[in-house]
Write a protein that binds this DNA or RNA. Structure first.
Lengths: 339, 339
DNA sequence: ATGAAAGCGCTAACAG
DNA sequence: CTGTTAGCGCTTTCAT
């Protein structure tokens, strides 16, 4: 008696299986499986199975399916900071297209720690997840392990040292637009606070700032600061800049949180924009300033998420073309008031 | 030949199994399993198994384990708005204690939609997840299904109509503290913008505001607005309030995002606090104001997450005591300047 | 302490 | 189109 009728008994109701449904519908388990997987089955049987399943309140067991198919309809999304709205917005994008396609997404917060990142990658393998979308904690992130399993991996926001599909922002261009906007508004000493030098997005944005200012400021290095991509670090950097013998009259913030930190400090000193120029590479989603007080180069985070998810789904479906990189451009929103 | 050595061959390396490890270590599969599950095994065999596993780069297959044990070491965290920092902060708390205990957490964004919420709950069952932590989209959220499976469920932030473990904020008290602080600072017409009336946190906070003002303002209803728990709704409500024949001189914001929306509108009109009083039930994590310009009653979101996770883990471990509710208090941070 | 063996619930050949 | 059957990789009695 290999598959006795289980039926609802005992605490925590026994799981009802495909066998229960099959016997109730008067068909074989295989047919039930087929109905739930969209393979051809005669209309009457489909109907019978559907009814039986409904009556028994049957939910297919994903673990069993995953074990058998050796692949779960789940994708891992690994990000360095779940508390950064940029990444949560991206997560929404991923989630939208993934769930549309019947995939769940597991959001993994690496907290910018290589070790946590590895742990999540391991879990992705252990759980037989179908693929991974990752914004790496560092360019040195190790992906050999997961790649060796044959799972598709898509890089978002940050490049990796692997030949992978990727979606990135046009970081240099965004920084140039932000900086130029400040120049045009009449600011003369434009500082820059960016993220950690070893993150490529940060390096590219810094380069953009430098390029936009080429030839106009001689002591450019003194006006450049590398912070973390977080509010606190930016505050410290901004304080430093203001304490300079010849302080700047404007600042370009390397990302949204840096923008927040910089503006906080400025506001505390009564230097509210446009008294002091501020341009942010990114959005200020929860700014309490008037939305038009600061220049922003909005980065299409959500779109980045949807694009990455689509690339990944294509790979999961078996697409084997060479790796693609999609570059997304930011959108300049000039502050309404200038100096 | 039931379990042939699989070994690394073909594209996307075959998964190495417990059998591969067993034969390489010269023990039985059961022993390998025991080693990975902490059951008693002689030191030499433990060593042999560990080495073999390392050499083969073995990762236990979670789907198989889940199927066999009928429970995955995964917990679902269902929240109504993944873009609200309050919930992401809470998620961090959950994640921290869960991963400490060897559990992964799957973050599910219901987007305040009952239907999405149900879908995620179904997935939790289908995936045999060990338990669920949920901030319901509505008090009418249906939990009978998941409860019938015997899985533990913990409610966070919002109460449910079920007899469950829960962690909530002291909402009424928080609103009273926020409002009183404004009264003490000398404001006279204190308005309130809260979340949807049918969410209990919103109702409780509104009640607190009303209570703190009892007897001091007669036309209290005209100063009360129900918005969504989001920035846009709050902006509209704030505009309305300012357009009143007898407009308020201060406002209590029912949550963080409402605070953001209200302050944005005020700032656009030159009514920066403290010219106009603002008190927020919640934090303004990314405020671009000086952090001391507005009164906040900080809600310990992260702590709520850690507490909920611990309650859930206890239930997963088999604890069967009656349902508990933990109430967390906010912390008042008075604005430094008054009217 | 260890091994043999029986499945967990589902899918995918393979027949028919 | 449908049923039979053999496992997916792991845990867990039950013996030894």
């Amino acid at each position: 008696m290999k598959h006795p009728g289980t039926g609802p008994i005992g605490r925590g109701r026994q799981m009802t299986t495909i066998y229960d449904v099959a016997s109730r519908a008067g068909v074989s388990p295989a047919t039930v499986s087929r109905v739930f997987n969209g393979t051809k089955v005669s209309p009457e049987k489909v109907e019978a199975v559907r009814r039986a399943a409904a009556e028994l309140d049957f939910t297919p067991n994903r673990a069993a399916r995953t074990l058998r198919r050796r692949s779960a309809e789940v994708i891992a999304l690994v990000i360095p900071d779940i508390e950064n709205p940029y990444f949560t917005e991206m997560a929404r994008g991923v989630e939208d297209v993934a769930s549309e396609a019947g995939y769940s997404v597991v959001l993994c917060n690496s907290d910018s720690q290589l070790e946590k990142e590895q742990t999540y990658l391991q879990i992705a393998v252990a759980e037989n997840m179908a693929g991974v979308i990752i914004a790496t904690a560092s360019p040195t992130t190790e992906l050999d392990g997961i790649l060796a399993t044959g799972r598709p991996v898509v890089a978002v926001d940050r490049a990796t040292r692997y030949d992978l599909d990727g979606v990135v922002m046009a970081n240099r261009e965004a920084a140039i637009a932000a900086t130029s906007s400040l120049v045009e508004a009449g600011y003369r000493r434009i500082a820059y606070i960016g993220g950690p030098e070893d993150i490529d997005t940060a390096a590219d944005r810094a380069a953009g700032w430098r390029e936009a200012l080429a030839g106009t400021q001689d002591d450019i290095e003194t006006l450049q600061r590398f912070s973390t991509y977080r509010v606190e670090g930016a505050r410290a950097a901004m304080e430093e800049l203001l304490a300079l013998p010849e302080p700047p009259d404007a600042v370009v913030a390397g990302n949204n949180l840096i923008g927040v930190g910089a503006i906080q400090v400025l506001t505390e000193r009564g230097l509210t924009p446009p008294a002091f120029g501020v341009a942010v590479v990114g959005s200020l989603p929860f700014t309490t300033l008037s939305p038009t007080a600061v220049t922003m180069v909005r980065l299409p985070a959500r779109h980045m998420g949807t694009t990455a998810a689509r690339l990944l789904l294509e790979r999961i479906a078996g697409d084997a073309q060479p790796a693609r990189t999609v570059v997304l451009r930011g959108e300049l929103h000039r502050a309404s008031a200038s100096r």
